[in-house]
Amino acid sequence: MRPFAYEAAADADGAVAALARGTAAARYLGGGTNLVDLMRLGVEQPELLVDVTRLAHGAIEPLDGGGLRIGAEVRNSDCAADRAVRERFPVLAQALLAGASGQLRNLATTAGNLLQRTRCAYFQDVSKPCNKRAVGSGCPAIEGDHRNLAILGHSEACVATHPSDMAVALAALGARVVVRGPGGERTIAMPGLHRLPGDEPERDTVLEHGDLITAVEVPGLPWATRSRYRKVRDRASFAFAVVSVAAALDVDEAGGTVRDARLALGGVAHVPWRALAAEDALRGAPATRESFEAAAEAELAAAEPLRDNAFKVSLAHNLIVRTLLELAGA
């Protein structure tokens, strides 16, 4: 294993400063469940790790308007178990519990989960080309094994997907990511944190080197009590999504029309895919199977499946309709 230095930062400013001192190969260390794996595989070769699990970002606090501020270090299992999260944003608790395993969730942090890297087999194998890992080396996944890769928003350079479940729920909820960088603090609205691969697939997000995530703010959304996360995977547990849906639905009970909706897809793109076209189609439409089908079609019209993953388009379609029907009936 390649030698590296380790520092435990005492506070956010210290962490940012420590990373700024390091080279481009310095990394923040959360639970380490993704980063350390990638170091073992030689995909990540940091010279410096700055441990950020002992800053003061480990709490979940209420925000005005019914929202929640989730500290960057909050462990995934703690977040999923939090009463306010479960009551106000069931979709988020469900998404967290659908991910990884109990042991991993006990270690994984909010920030680390958002920034985990793709599970594309070529990205993880340093003996093979990959534009995301080795700029300009090529993308063998396009011709190779891509059954579980992207159907939306991919490019000639990269067809990887973002693997996080939690991020899909946060994208649906329009969460804001609070970032402390060398230049101060700013917030980035989800799904804007992650970016499509384009011709720079080496960049997963809009963050700059040295940016530290300190919290995620989920704005109040009273009708998100009627929300859910549904994940389809190849194995009943402990598997990444083939396709997942995070959805919340606000139905005018009297008129039976959709007042508002939130919808995001996982397992389909380089980003947690906020389904804005579907949301538009749903707003004001009757809460019926026909509207839900139309919304799914509106969103998936843009899908460009690869040789072996056309099934994901049908799957995403069925899953959107099914989840909305369940929410409408709930």
Partner: peptide
Amino acid sequence: FGDYVNHDLAGYHVACNA
């Protein structure tokens, strides 16, 4: 490449308890 690409237990699924 001529190899088995899903060469780990996250890529090669064995049955789990669930």
